[in-house]
Design a protein around this nucleic acid. Sequence first.
RNA 1: GCGAGUAUGGCGGAAUAGGCAGACGCACAGGACUUAAAAUCCUGCGGGCUUCAAAACCCGUACCAGUUCGACUCUGGUUACUCGCACCA
Length: 815
Amino acid sequence: MYNKKIDEKWQKEWEEKKQAKFNKENVDKKYYCLEMFSYPSGAKLHVGHWYNYGPVDTFARFKKLQGYEVFQPMGFDAFGLPAENYAIKTGVHPYDSTMKNIDTMEKQLKAMGAMFNWDAEVITCKEDYYKWTQWLFLKLYEMGLAYRKKANVNWCPSCNTVLANEQVINGLCERCSSVVTKKDLTQWFFKITDYAEELLDGLKDLDWPEKTKKIQTNWIGKSNGTIATFKVEGKDLSFDVFTTRVDTICGVSYVVLAPEHELVPKLATKENVEKVNEYIEKCKLVTEIDRLAEDREKTGVFTGSYAINPVTGDRVEIWIADYVLSTYGTGCVMAVPAHDERDFKFALKYKLPVKQVIKPVDDERIDLTKEAYTKPGILINSGKFDNLTTEEAKNDITKYLKEKELGDFKTSYRLRDWLVSRQRYWGAPIPIIYCDECGVVPVPEKDLPVKLPYNVEFKPDGKSPLAKCKEFVNTVCPCCGKKAKRETDTLDTFVCSSWYQFRYPDNKNDKKIFDTEWIDKMLPVDKYVGGPEHAAMHLLYARFITKVLRDAGYTKVSEPFKSLVHQGLILGPDGNKMSKSKGNVISPDEYVNKYGSDVFRMYLMFGFNYSDGGPWSEDGVVSMSKFILRLERILDKILQLPDNDNNVINENEKDLLYVFNSSLKGITNDLENMQFNTAIAKIMEITNALYKYDKDVEIKNTKMLKELAKKFIVVFAPFTPHFAEEMWNRFGGEFSVFNQKYIKVDEKYLTKDTTELPVQINGVVRFKVEIPTNLDEKQIEETVVNDERLKKYTIDKEIKKVIVVKSRIINVVVK
RNA sequence: GCGAGUAUGGCGGAAUAGGCAGACGCACAGGACUUAAAAUCCUGCGGGCUUCAAAACCCGUACCAGUUCGACUCUGGUUACUCGCACCA
């Protein structure tokens, strides 16, 4: 009887016989199947890991049976805040706790029985990995893609570190939900904005969920517009504004700069400087969460200076206001209250003029005392641009500005450079040395890795823990040999995970980050599976780094993940997200121990639509256990049937073979699309058909039956690998069932002599007819029209039309 | 506010390309086996109406319209929930 012992027996056998080994000579048939690696913050695998890895392993095994050389590696994203926070709380060193967790999780992953290639394992906190993460940093530095700048950055006061924009969720820290504040710091950035256009453009060819592509598209946030230069009246100063509605430029009634804008101190006049400074100070105190609050009242202050409209020559007030973001566009906007909602509200509050320059095309009435008219229309009050449409005017006005050298077409992106410095201990040290003589000096490649020291005081106080470790900080300059200091910040863990897909296939290379020729054979990843929460961060960063490596000449690959799938989320039995505080956490171990790993995996695959997930159900697991035992009983019964000479294929045999082959066709198709739930439904149908045959037929065709059973075992093997290996063995199959060829559909059993077709009268199904499969449409129509049962629907009526959809349906229209 | 998605029995969920709504499973009910229970095997199972029973008929995929011989599926609108973005100029 299937149980946990069977799991263990075959796991041992698979390991001994290296089932998961990747045979390099078959690389032309490679299938790189990758699941997002584990983050060993908790001590154990949770249901989410299982839901990611179990079903995908089924997919990988299916690919193996189809004849692919499957590469399915596993590893650990081992640096990061949770281990460090745990250390702060308990005093256990992050390295020790992480390694212990990895040890436990490896054991659990092995007990899952997935076909992971452990020879290819990577652990990001180990020297042989982070050496290359540091190398990657140096490469970016060399290419001018890593740079240092002072910036007003997102600061989490609880984690005591800066955060990338992507890590700020609604003004809160992604990890601890503290309110994020701002801080001026000199930090390292990666120039991801250089790749904005390509990152956007590359999306269209990817086999990714549309939603994920959309998230990335929004995140990159491309918009086409115009840049226009406003000169400051009476001063030798000017500034640029970015606008997507240059057609409204004649309606500019004031301009606004972000409070952080560098020109602001020069623009504040004597009378206004006090008010301006006061306002700037006030803005600094506003937290991200307040700033984002809906319907927040707009505030601002007049600088006392005036700007000249480059088209009309009009003189307009220069204001500063924090509704203008210093980080987008140029940090300055031209305000057109008549045609922009925000400008309108602001103008109303501060009694600034409103000038209409666009009128609706079809003369919809618009009351400009109450709201702004933001739609495109026809220009008015715009001098020589009058009567142009919005689209024409955008083009003409920009060209006019360009001629006068006061503007040009311009594309802006919402995407900002990736801030990679972290003021934390548990990460890869940034390989940079600061020398009084030579300035910023990259650590030479031969000196890598810059080792993360073990004995460090990592209690957080806003400074990098490494700064307190003298042995680490103090070094000599690789250029001049004089005393110098190391960079003490570490790299964002997303840097570590942005390139791991390249390291797996060549994880032991100690000469290079990876071998280019080999990697170009192994990449891209054919199927990448992980949670949708990584849509904007990990997946964007990994694409960026791939393009950087390509441009550095290390690979030909431009996109790392050809095809992407997101699994859903398994909720607690109460329908809420699993959390300790809610007490609804399901532990996989309990179930795996009780029912076996195959049962657990089957339940996860059968109970939900894979990409939706849903609430956990206790009953579902029990029923799945029952199903596997039911399947085992009928297979054992077939196995024990004494052989006979009955070779007939009659109706019963045909029915069975029909169910088998049509289900097989469906299963194959479902697996390709990761529709595990429907695939398992079809496995159940085959099982039910075997029971039915067993019940209905006294003298069985045992030869056919036994052959069919063996084929069936191969078909369901990816779903229940241990159980299937066991059954394959019982049926005398040679090890391993996964070395068999996937079963082909036998088309001859898919066609039946007659088909039952539903007959509709005016679109409502009334009865069914048995139609020989070889009849054509005309003959089918005749059969139906002459059917006795049709008569009662045609009394006093006339048959207007008969629609025959071959092998589907017949619709008789009567009136 | 903008954008995207989802909505199907008591429950989880199915339904190529517009063609039998509810596959498969859970729960429930009945039967067989059993001294009995469990397990197992078999059967039934959207609602209504009718009936000794059945056939037949009517309603039914969030709601309201539309296109079509035919709509869970396509179009327009409404509601609810989920997700993404959010003062992006």
